Simulated scan of single mutants.
Amino acid sequence: MDAEALDDIDRVPHGGATDPGVVDFSANTNPESPSGVTAVYDSALSASRRYPADDYVAFRAAAADYVDCAPAEVIPTAGAMAGMRLLFALALGDGDSAIVPEPSFGEYAREISLQGGRPVSVAHDAILDVDPADHALVVVCTPNNPTGELVDRDDLLRLAARCRKVGTTLFVDEAFLDFTPQRSLAGEPGVVVARSLTKVFGLPGLRAGFLVATGTLRDRLDRGRLPWGLSTPAAAVGTHCLRRTEFVERTRERVAAERERVRERLAAEWEVYPSDAPFLLFDTGADDPDAVLAAARERGVVLRDARSFPRLDGHLRTAIRRPRENDRLLDALGV
């Protein structure tokens, strides 16, 4: 890590409300989790007086089945963020440039800078057209946060081929891919995929996730990861959740139906971006976004102020939750 960069780089703002009296639409996490999580956690907690087995055999197997790759290609991490830092530390040398989409998840540029790299911003909808030559890394978020669009898998494969040709690592953040039927890029040579249990399983505080990589890159990531980087409860709950494919399918169907319903209502008042994710980005236009945020908060609803993302003036983002909660959102916004 570049120690001097820490003097100039601030924390990245994120969604998430701590007030129990409001419904939080600012964080894009599932309000539901698979059944049985508490029992699995409690059982694993009793085993936490011992170090976890550092090979994480069961977790790797479940993750591999989930994204259709080989278990050895799975690198367990304490959430996708820990995996991202591990990869960036490996892939970036001092002064190396990395292509990042904009607007997108703010931690990409921050983590690249913390590793001594240089983030090069490209419009999120032009990321597939970049020339990866002379860059150490290309970052793609699919579906992109906060805009919500899914990147076509065949287009990603073509970008991966161009990256391989020039020796550039392609990093694909699939944190929201669970909400779509599209197959992961896990196992594709030269590509590092990041997955998280935060979003679809509604467990942001568990801090469980994984990378998928192949070949020499996989070997280096596995050697470089922290020992016992995934706690015993996180590994056990993660394994349990990754086996709950019926839960994922039900969540996907609910989110798709509710997203369209909410989109239609919001579109009567504001411009709403097309989305394949469990959230919608909308432009308040001539309306004062602060007034919209305050009015919603008075009615017990917290939205994400998307003006903290580059290139977004007057934009807000809302998560898609359960039908009754979404009704409360629409009432609070008066649409």
Rank of each mutant, 00 (worst) to 15 (best):
E4W: 13
L6V: 08
L6G: 07
I9W: 09
I9D: 07
V12L: 06
D24Q: 09
N28S: 14
E32P: 00
D42P: 00
R49H: 13
P52W: 07
F59Q: 06
A63H: 05
A64P: 06
C69H: 07
P71C: 13
P76N: 13
M84E: 12
L92G: 00
L92E: 03
D94L: 13
I99W: 05
V100S: 00
P101R: 03
P103A: 05
S104Q: 05
S104R: 04
R110N: 10
I112N: 07
I112S: 05
V120N: 10
D125N: 14
V130M: 08
P132V: 11
V139M: 05
C141I: 12
N144H: 07
G148E: 01
L156K: 03
L156M: 12
R158W: 03
R158Y: 09
L159S: 02
R164C: 09
T168F: 05
E174G: 05
D178N: 12
L185R: 07
G190N: 14
V191T: 04
S196Y: 01
G202D: 09
G205E: 10
G205L: 06
R207L: 12
G209M: 09
D222Y: 07
D222R: 14
T232A: 10
A235Y: 00
A236P: 00
T239R: 03
T245N: 10
T245I: 14
T251C: 14
A256Q: 03
L266R: 04
D276H: 07
A277C: 12
D290E: 14
A291Y: 02
R299G: 04
D305V: 08
R311A: 12
G314T: 04
P323I: 08
A332F: 01
